[in-house]
């Protein structure tokens, strides 16, 4: 199968200016050996589709864009899933697992210490959902910040993401350490 055969709709592109909400019952995702997803939809097969959370800070499950690239360059959106929980159980699990992998971001559950090395780096010693970590943050004014009234986003020097979904839900000691910096 050539690359062009894989994208049969190339001659008739989806209209770019219309929001196309996808019918969850018509979608069928499978996972390829490469780890990417394949979508069977309206009689067409789309390989290496990409799922994108359109509002990742507000919602994990709603407004997920489904897209692919022609020849790995030209972006094409198939449509948007309004709520992935409307997918069948097995399909939801597959899509949810893939999204969690793509947006892998451990949650910080407790903070042991936060140290500023006064050279622009912040070292956060914290318990996270993937174990205890020392998170090193550069330019902490930008990369250790509240993205809503409750949610704190952390981006470390390697590009890994961490979240505290609700800083007020942290224990008192952790909260007092965070409050010094936000």
């Amino acid at each position: 199968m050539t690359q062009n055969d894989r994208f049969p709709e190339k001659a008739a592109p989806v209209e770019a200016d219309i929001l196309r909400l996808l019918d969850c019952s018509a979608l069928h995702f499978t996972q390829e050996d490469s780890g990417f997803l394949t979508l069977d939809f309206e009689g067409k097969t789309y390989h290496k589709v990409s799922l994108t959370r359109l509002i990742p800070f507000y919602s994990d499950d709603t407004f997920v864009s489904v897209s692919y690239k022609i020849d790995e360059t030209e972006f094409r959106e198939i449509g948007v899933i309004k709520d992935i929980r409307e997918l069948s159980k097995e399909q939801f699990e597959l899509v949810d697992r893939w999204l969690r992998f793509k947006y892998y971001a451990p949650t910080v559950t407790r903070i042991h210490s936060i140290k500023d090395n006064r050279m622009g780096y912040l070292f956060v010693d914290a318990d996270t959902t993937s174990g205890r970590k020392t998170i090193c943050i550069n330019d902490w004014f930008s990369n250790f910040r509240m993205i809503s009234k409750k949610m704190l986003s952390i981006l470390d020097v390697d590009g890994n993401r961490y979240y505290i979904p609700d800083v007020n839900a942290l224990d008192k000691k952790s909260l007092s350490k965070v409050e010094l910096f936000v």
Partner: peptide
């Protein structure tokens, strides 16, 4: 990707995931 990465190898014309890792090792 956004919070993770992976290494794939093409075997017999199809890509196969070899391993996945956080951005530290990208």
């Amino acid at each position: 990707m956004i919070g993770s990465s992976m290494l794939c190898g093409k075997i017999g014309g199809e890509f196969v995931e070899l391993c996945a890792f956080t951005q530290k090792y990208f």
